[in-house]
Amino acid sequence: MDIKIKIEGGGLSFEGETDIVKAAQVIAFIKSDSIPNPTKPAALLTGVTNTQTTPRQALVDSNAKTNPEKITVLGKYLMDRDNQTNFSGREVQEIMKKTGEKMPKNFSRDLQVAIDDLGYIFEDDVQKGQYSVTDGGAQAILNGFSLNNQNRNSRRKSKTNKSGGKKAIREEVNKLDISGEKEGLPNYWQIDSKGHRILWLINYAESNKIDGLSPVEIESLATKLRDDIESKNVRALTTKSAKNNFIKVDPSGKYKILQNGIKFLKKSDFEKDAKKQS
């Protein structure tokens, strides 16, 4: 006896006949709580499980600009192409070379940014070195990383002035009179770590009613104290402070000290540490 089957919805429309055995399999499949080796709906209908685009086209379509974004896109490409739930860093590097894409100078760091900072990728707890793209990463790809692009544009605007596109330092920062000593804070030069000296600078500025500092403003204040902290190194120097919840970076790119950071500066005995090292 022939069984009629009709499927509609989600842009799909199918109507046909089959025998009772196949119909029973369809019903069992629909009622099943889990699907072995899941694929995209399009793959189920066409029988094609591999992605129909190239890695180069995937990068172009996604509008990926940064290395962490490109790693995310290529990781998703590998998962779709091979119908797998994960991928390795080496696989991404190999396919990146084949596309002619410029290889990241520090692939491991950029992968970690995609994991820790952006939340686009996560590492398998059991299989170390195996990664998957998160739902947020997949959505960012679909959106063309539009939110990231908006944030980048916002940071660029905050660093430029109207006349010539030079990095801007706010007037109140330029006028700030700064010395290496302030009541309630350790002496600036007793702090050995540049990352912790950046905490000091941000706290000093905020105690003078300046709401956070951009990297170029941090460099400017450090220069006033004859210290060598370049704006391009601020992010790397503050990685540990960010992980310890000492600072945060707002959407405009300004670094702000948090309560944990203030407590750290006040409680740490930098003078004692300096004597130990001398």
Score class of each variant (00 low, 15 high):
Q150I: 14
R109N: 11
R152F: 07
G119C: 09
K166V: 03
N151I: 12
V126P: 02
D124Y: 06
K159Y: 03
Q112Y: 11
A138P: 02
Q130H: 12
Y131R: 06
R156S: 13
D125M: 11
G165C: 00
L118N: 13
R152E: 13
Q112N: 15
K167R: 11
S154P: 01
Y131H: 06
P186S: 05
D117K: 15
T134R: 01
Q112S: 14
G137R: 01
G136K: 07
G165Y: 00
T134I: 04
V133N: 00
Q150R: 14
R170L: 05
N153V: 08
A140V: 03
E123L: 04
G119Q: 05
A140Y: 00
V133A: 02
N174H: 12
G137F: 01
K162C: 08
S154R: 14
G180Q: 03
L185W: 00
L147E: 14
L111F: 04
E181K: 13
V113S: 04
T160E: 11
R109M: 09
E183V: 08
E172S: 12
K128G: 08
N174R: 14
A168L: 10
G136I: 06
R109F: 09
N151A: 09
E183H: 07
S163M: 13
I141N: 00
G137H: 01
Q130M: 09
R152M: 09
Q112H: 09
D117I: 10
S154V: 11
K175P: 02
T134E: 03
E123F: 04
N151E: 09
L142F: 07
E171S: 15
G180P: 05
K162P: 07
S146E: 15
Q112A: 10
A138M: 10
Q130R: 13
N149R: 15
L185V: 02
I169W: 01
A138D: 14
V113L: 06
K159Q: 09
K167L: 01
E123P: 05
Q130I: 06
Y120A: 05
Q112D: 14
I141W: 00
E172N: 14
Q150N: 07
S108T: 15
N161H: 11
K182C: 02
G119L: 07
K157L: 15
R156L: 12
D117E: 13
G137K: 01
S108F: 07
R155I: 07
I115K: 12
I178F: 03
R156Q: 13
E183F: 05
R156N: 12
D125S: 14
A138R: 13
